[in-house]
């Protein structure tokens, strides 16, 4: 495993901003005293005049971002997921979401894999919060390649976008030939026995689960669902009809995240059993990220267990 290249998607974000700035001069970057951690510091170092530190004041950060966007410019606004989506939720809803402004909220340190900082900083609710806002696009990239592409596509999109990045270095899954499109899921492995729909760092775990399941004679389709909203209902319905059972996998609460978004589609359009893997209505805890992913059951072997569970329910 040691030869697999690993990059934290927060680094991908910082690098993508600098790359984007080479060809676009109509956007600013804001942070709330976390530039070194969110990696907007990479942008700050390259283009200090286009970077503004709003200090430890996330509510004002979102309002300032809205104001910049209201003048016809674009803006990337960053903090940790807990503070961007949580603390400033109402500013995001009313000052950014309601007027549908061109603010790209790029939140890092999402999920359990924040690690040692513990429960106060491990946001497992951000996808749920952000996807309730009308017109908000919500993206949770799986690796470095997808994260960079998500930044570029979000810039091009007219309207508010929430992108979720992680602190932990994760394997690079995709090469430059990967075609990321906002709102499109991607089938990474074919299979007709069951479908695993994963997002973020769980995509790599889903690919491993696919291989483990093959050893048991189970051929699982694997779908990467980077865009949680608008959700790709077409690929979900197709998977439900062709495989008859779905497991969702996310480093987020099972309440309101990817699993809920998939269930919304499946319940309405093609009812089949869905089992959700994620964080089960509990707060996180301190510890090294890779240990916590074991403790919270966010691993390939846990996906395999859920696949066996859902196959019991499959008619």
């Amino acid at each position: 495993m040691s030869d697999i290249k690993k990059i934290a998607t927060r680094d991908s974000y910082g690098n993508a901003l600098v790359e984007l700035a080479k060809t676009h001069d109509d956007f600013l970057v804001l942070d709330a005293d976390l530039a070194a951690a969110t990696k907007t510091g990479i942008f700050k170092k390259a283009l200090p005049e286009r970077f503004n530190n709003c200090g430890i004041a996330e509510q004002n950060l979102m309002g300032v971002a809205a104001g910049i966007a209201a003048t016809g410019k674009k803006v990337f606004a960053s903090s940790f997921a807990m503070f961007a989506a949580g603390r400033a939720f109402e500013q995001v809803r009313n000052s950014i979401g309601y007027p549908h402004l061109n603010v790209k909220i790029c939140a890092t340190h999402a999920g359990i894999s924040v690690g040692e900082d513990g429960a106060t900083h491990q946001c497992n609710e951000d996808i749920a919060l952000m996807r309730t806002i009308p017109g908000m696009t919500v993206i949770n990239p799986a690796d470095d390649t997808e994260a960079r592409m998500a930044v570029f596509k979000a810039y091009e999109l007219d309207g508010p976008v929430y992108i979720r990045f992680g602190r932990l270095a994760v394997p690079v899954i995709f090469d430059e030939s990967y075609d990321f499109q906002i709102g499109k899921g991607v089938e990474l492995k074919p299979g007709n026995d069951v479908t695993i729909i994963a997002t973020g760092l769980m995509v790599n775990e889903a690919l491993q689960a696919h291989d483990l399941l093959l050893q048991d004679g189970i051929n699982a389709r694997v779908i990467n669902m980077a865009t949680i909203k608008p959700i790709d209902s077409e690929i979900i319905v197709k998977a439900a009809m062709e495989t008859g059972a779905i497991v969702t996998a996310e480093e987020h609460s099972v309440i309101g995240g990817l699993g809920s978004a998939v269930c919304d589609v499946v319940c309405a359009e093609c009812p089949v059993p869905v089992v959700k893997l994620g964080v089960y209505d509990t707060f996180g805890m301190s510890g090294p990220a890779n240990e916590l992913l074991d403790v919270f059951g966010l691993r390939a072997k846990n996906i395999v267990e859920k696949v066996h569970d859902v196959l019991q329910l499959k008619k």
Partner: peptide, 13 residues
């Protein structure tokens, strides 16, 4: 409380 932040962002822009 939100409008003054937006006005600040406009002035910054």
């Amino acid at each position: 409380g939100q409008g003054i932040s937006a006005a600040t962002g406009m002035a910054l822009s």
